[in-house]
């Protein structure tokens, strides 16, 4: 896990804006998007619902990626995942 200041310096290889979707949308978006991230690259998921900040880390762990951390920002959340497989 990384702290917010360190997270905000990360350069995401792909950003997926999941603000227009509700459960299970963000998971489906993350699954689709991670395929376009190079190995060990970083995916950033932007969400407007807090539940997604619980679910995306669980998804990452289950599927085998590294969850790096989440930054809260003006009612949205930026969730960072490193592709590991």
């Amino acid at each position: 896990m990384m702290e917010a200041p360190a997270l905000s310096t990360l350069k995401a290889d792909k950003v997926v804006d999941a603000r227009g979707t509700a459960c299970p949308g963000p998971l489906l978006e993350a699954k689709r998007a991670i395929a376009a991230v190079p190995m060990n690259g970083i995916l950033e998921v932007i969400s407007s619902d807090e539940g997604t900040t619980t679910d995306v880390p669980l998804w990452a762990r289950k599927v085998g990626h590294d969850y790096l951390g989440t930054v809260a920002e003006g009612g949205n959340w930026r969730i960072y995942v490193r592709r590991r497989k």
């Binding site: 459960c23 299970p24 998971l27 489906l28 289950k62």
Partner: peptide
């Protein structure tokens, strides 16, 4: 279907 899709997304 929400559960099914979530489970499939989690491989």
């Amino acid at each position: 279907f929400t559960i099914a899709n979530g489970a499939a997304a989690m491989d």
